[in-house]
């Protein structure tokens, strides 16, 4: 077993155990902690696949952001010191059925595609974050012409060189909207307090 495979198995085991922990535990803070480990080791798998920007996104948005919101949500709303979520037998049955359904969809999709080792040409490269960065800044010449793999019969769909400067700047305007929205909500709250 190569080191690469060993790392994959370690990360996959941590992800699976943590995901089971999220579902099994009845304490919401423990569920959040299990979720933290599940999301972080998923990020590790992304890094292992060479998708470092995706891994960083997973760490910053999910492990950093979503977890903060979950923990803050618990802190702000918890009525007692230990919030336990009682799960009934019917809820277990429904969630088990939904989970198995999702798993079967994923398994069917996975069986449909061919293993990538047969398809990927030796010079195939994934997009490292520096290329994504160059593309975000409008330098389209840096984007490698990556190909879509995993199709039946080893087909390739060539991807044209693109740049993402406009989406990049739209994102910053989007963040501006979010901040102004938060500021507006805070101001509306103060006005109501003034009236009262």
């Amino acid at each position: 077993m190569t080191l690469h495979a060993a790392l994959f198995y370690i990360l996959a085991t941590v992800t699976a155990i943590s995901a089971i922990g999220v579902a099994v535990t009845s304490n919401i803070v423990r569920a959040a902690t299990w979720l933290l480990f599940a999301l972080a080791s998923t990020a590790g798998i992304y890094f292992l696949l060479g998708a470092d920007f995706l891994g960083a996104t997973q760490l910053i948005v999910y492990v950093g952001g979503t977890m903060i919101l979950v923990v803050f949500g618990v802190m702000l709303t918890a009525s007692g010191p230990f919030v336990n979520m009682k799960v009934g037998a019917a809820e277990w049955a429904i969630s088990l059925a939904v989970g198995l359904l999702l798993y079967s969809v994923l398994a069917i999709v996975l069986l449909q595609i061919e293993p990538p080792s047969r398809n990927i040409p030796p010079n195939h490269t994934l997009l490292p974050s520096k290329h994504i960065g160059a593309a975000l800044l409008g330098s389209s010449s840096s984007t490698p012409e990556a190909k879509v793999t995993g199709l039946r019969g080893g087909q390739f769909i060539p991807r044209t060189r693109v740049s993402y400067l406009l989406p990049f700047e739209i994102i910053s305007v989007h963040l501006l909207v979010v901040l102004i929205g938060a500021a507006y909500l805070a101001r509306a709250k103060r006005r109501r307090e003034d009236v009262a």
Binding site: F53, A56, T57, I60, V61, G64, G65, I68, L69, F72, M75, L76, T77, A78, S79, P128, S129, K130, H131, I132, G133, A134, L136, L137, F168, I171, S172, L175, V178, L179, A182, L185, A186
Partner: peptide, 29 residues
């Protein structure tokens, strides 16, 4: 129970968190 004002701090954190995310590929470049 913590004050609900903390939630606004969390949202402000998220905005700058996502901002940071888009600075990362630039920094790598």
């Amino acid at each position: 129970k913590f004050d609900v004002k903390f939630y606004l701090i969390a949202i402000l954190f998220l905005v700058f968190d996502v901002e940071l995310l888009f600075l990362y590929p630039w920094a790598a470049t």
